[in-house]
Nucleic acid binder design. Structure first.
Length: 299
DNA sequence: GGTAGACCTGGACGC
DNA sequence: GCGTCCAGGTCTACC
């Protein structure tokens, strides 16, 4: 295995990034908690496929890979890992605000704030659509089927596959996605996204670092089929905009238990509960140390 | 702007 | 084993 190291804006914890949300459980991510290794099957611009093994290295991250890469490819992998782990992201202002809130006081000590991302926005939009209107087990199953059925295999390890490209998905028909991949009614959304991306009509990757305002970005996301208020807020978080709470059924339950004594709450009440965190309210919600984590009934 | 019904799947449950 | 019900966000039509 060849390796290189990348620095991160301190504080940095790979474990905190990995456990920031459930993305590490979705193919082609793999995580070995005992060894602290996050594995991702990546596809480079050149079309080459490789397995990346990411581990904590001092205050940064170490990337191990095979086969040998060109200088250009190594630069591409560096940019990819920096984006996926948010190595250049800073949360100093947020940490200052957290110091007076017991439920967030550990954020800086644990280096929390960075959210694990896929290398491409295409992959993250697809995965976000697959989180909607289904249980987490369904999201994992649908993602695994997409990768298994339509992902390109790593030559040296044919059972290891990358996330399917927009081109690969664009060539499919709706019944295949609906039945074979088990996407159900989400199939036309994914197919349209893939076809628009593959044709060049939609340049998702340009939006990772666009000059759009947060409001413009959100409006653009809501214009994508299958992306509603929850999915848009979730993707905005991945894009580094934290000024809105992604309200789903879990958020309604947790906020009800935490702030409303178990009484049913509305999406407005969930947003109101975190409104005081301003541009950080989404992150405050994400990192909140809930008194009741949802696995038991409230006191 | 708000609301109701349809969409689709898998899991839980009762028989 | 089979049938029924329910949870989970978004879209569309309608008011």
């Amino acid at each position: 295995m060849r390796t290189f190291k990348l620095p991160a804006v301190p504080p940095f914890s790979l474990a905190s990034v990995i456990q920031s949300h459930g993305w590490y459980q979705l193919a082609p991510f793999q995580y070995e908690p005992a060894e602290g290794v996050l594995t991702y099957t990546a596809r480079l611009d050149s079309g080459r496929l490789l397995q990346l093994n990411l581990t904590q290295s001092g205050t940064g991250v170490s990337a191990a890979y095979e086969p040998e890469l060109t200088h250009t490819e190594t630069s591409e992998v560096s940019r990819m890992v920096t984006w996926m782990l948010g190595l250049d992201q800073q949360f100093g202002v947020f940490y200052q605000l957290c110091r007076d809130e017991p439920a967030l006081a550990q954020s800086e000590a644990l280096a929390r704030g960075r959210l694990l991302r896929s290398p491409t926005l295409f992959e993250d939009v697809v995965k976000t659509i697959l989180t909607t209107n289904t249980a987490w087990s369904g999201t994992k199953r649908m993602t695994m089927r997409l990768v298994t059925l339509y992902g390109e295999p790593v030559p040296a390890q044919p059972i290891v596959k990358a996330f399917p490209t927009p081109q690969a998905l664009a060539e499919l028909d709706e019944p295949a996605l609906r039945k074979d991949a088990g996407l159900g009614y989400r199939a036309p959304y994914i197919l349209e996204l893939a076809q628009r991306t593959a044709s060049g009509e939609l340049d998702l990757e340009a939006h990772k670092n666009s000059s759009m305002t947060a409001a413009e970005r959100k409006k653009w996301l809501l214009g994508l089929k299958g992306i509603g208020p929850y999915a848009a807020a979730n993707l905005m978080m991945l894009l580094g905009h934290y000024d809105e709470v992604p309200v789903d059924s879990w958020a309604l339950m947790m906020v009800s238990r935490e702030f409303y004594n178990g009484e049913p709450v509305t999406a407005k009440q969930v947003r109101a509960a975190f409104e005081r965190w301003g541009e950080w309210q989404g992150l405050a919600y994400f990192l909140w140390d809930w008194k009741n984590d949802g696995t038991s009934q409230p006191a």
